[in-house]
């Protein structure tokens, strides 16, 4: 039985039993090259739910801060390994109510980066098929077809994944994926090394260049599963105007730094913000660095242990020697 079949079965069961009011999964988008989040209310509709390496959306975003409508809804949802970490991060701070959730863990062997594929073709993509594990076949509107190895077109975050299986789930869709030996090797931060090695002036110039293009659409904060203030966001406050309305590199970078600091200790570097940004700002340069330093300071990986408190809500007199 495929993972997709498991998901459908779990969803149908939970809906039929009244365990959930609706179930959040993934379904096909406007064509078979794209996947979008799906909200299923009727057990008869579970057949629209799919599982493919295009299911990049972190569905935890839809339940953050108990925001769903109606407020007391019982919700089922699918989480990949990375998604589950953001859910654990929310649970650690009691920002969501465990009792109202039904979580299906989906072991994941890597999500395909659709943007990487788009850049391979001049035309729009109309179909992305996965005939067997590891193969990706892309077809464009003009009928051009090419095949890729899945490992070559994965999201960058997937290449460094340490948690392919859900860390919190009520049910699991099929057998677990092989876990890397986490004792053996710590997280890999090589993706930000190039930036870290720049001189101060070069860093400033690079940031100026990328942040000048931010259009302050707030897609990054909307999609972020752990950015929880929602309608009370300091970035959008007009009275007082804490962040200038002006859209310039300085203001944009300040806004993004606020986003980073507000999710510090909860951000798992899931990469949803990078994927959502319409102008492709490399937000990972900030959140990956932040997580690297948090790991260095506390040995803490956000969202990995349910009984841990985020590091900025605690202190430890025995081990905190900062500023001494």
């Amino acid at each position: 039985m495929s993972r997709q079949d498991h998901i459908r079965e779990f969803a149908a069961q939970a809906l039929a039993d009244g365990r959930v009011d609706y179930f959040i999964g993934w379904k096909q988008g406007y064509n078979s090259s794209e996947v979008v989040p799906a909200f299923v209310k009727d057990p008869a509709d579970v057949d629209q739910l799919i599982w493919t390496p295009l299911c990049h959306h972190n569905l935890v975003t839809f339940i953050k801060r108990n925001m769903p409508d109606p407020a007391d809804a019982k919700i089922g949802l699918c989480v990949k390994g990375c998604d589950s970490r953001t859910l654990v991060a929310l649970l650690q701070e009691e920002l969501v109510d465990k009792e109202k959730l039904y979580v299906v863990g989906v072991p994941c062997d890597g999500i395909v980066d659709r943007r990487k594929l788009e850049k391979e073709f001049a035309d729009e993509l109309v179909d992305i098929a996965f005939p067997e594990r590891g193969r990706v076949v892309v077809t464009t509107g003009k009928g051009e077809t090419r095949e890729f190895a899945q490992d070559d077109v994965l999201l960058d975050v997937c290449g460094r994944c340490r948690y392919p299986n859900a860390l919190y789930a009520d049910d699991v869709a099929g057998p677990l994926e092989a876990e890397p030996d986490r004792e053996e090797s710590g997280p890999d931060w090589s993706d930000i090394a190039d930036f870290e090695n720049l001189s101060d002036d070069e860093k400033q110039a690079a940031l100026e260049r990328v942040y000048a293009t931010c259009i302050r659409c707030f897609a990054c904060v909307h999609v972020c599963p752990v950015c929880v203030c929602w309608d009370k966001c300091v970035n959008r406050s007009r009275e007082p105007e804490l962040v200038a309305q002006k859209v310039g590199a300085k203001e944009n970078l300040l806004f993004q730094m606020i986003h980073m600091f507000h999710v510090a200790g909860r951000c798992t570097s899931c990469g949803a913000c990078d994927r959502a940004c319409p102008v492709e700002i490399p937000l990972y340069l900030l959140h990956r660095k932040m997580n690297k330093e948090i790991y260095d300071m506390f040995g803490f990986e956000p969202g990995t242990k349910l009984d841990e408190k985020p590091v900025f809500q605690l202190f430890d007199l025995a081990t905190d020697h900062f500023g001494d």
């Binding site: 720049l198 330093e293 900062f322």
Partner: peptide, 19 residues
């Protein structure tokens, strides 16, 4: 005690920005 954890991260991030 809470502050110094934040300041340490802040300092590292400020340097990361090229300040």
């Amino acid at each position: 005690y809470y502050a110094r954890r934040k300041f340490e991260l802040l300092e590292r991030m400020i340097h990361h920005l090229g300040i």
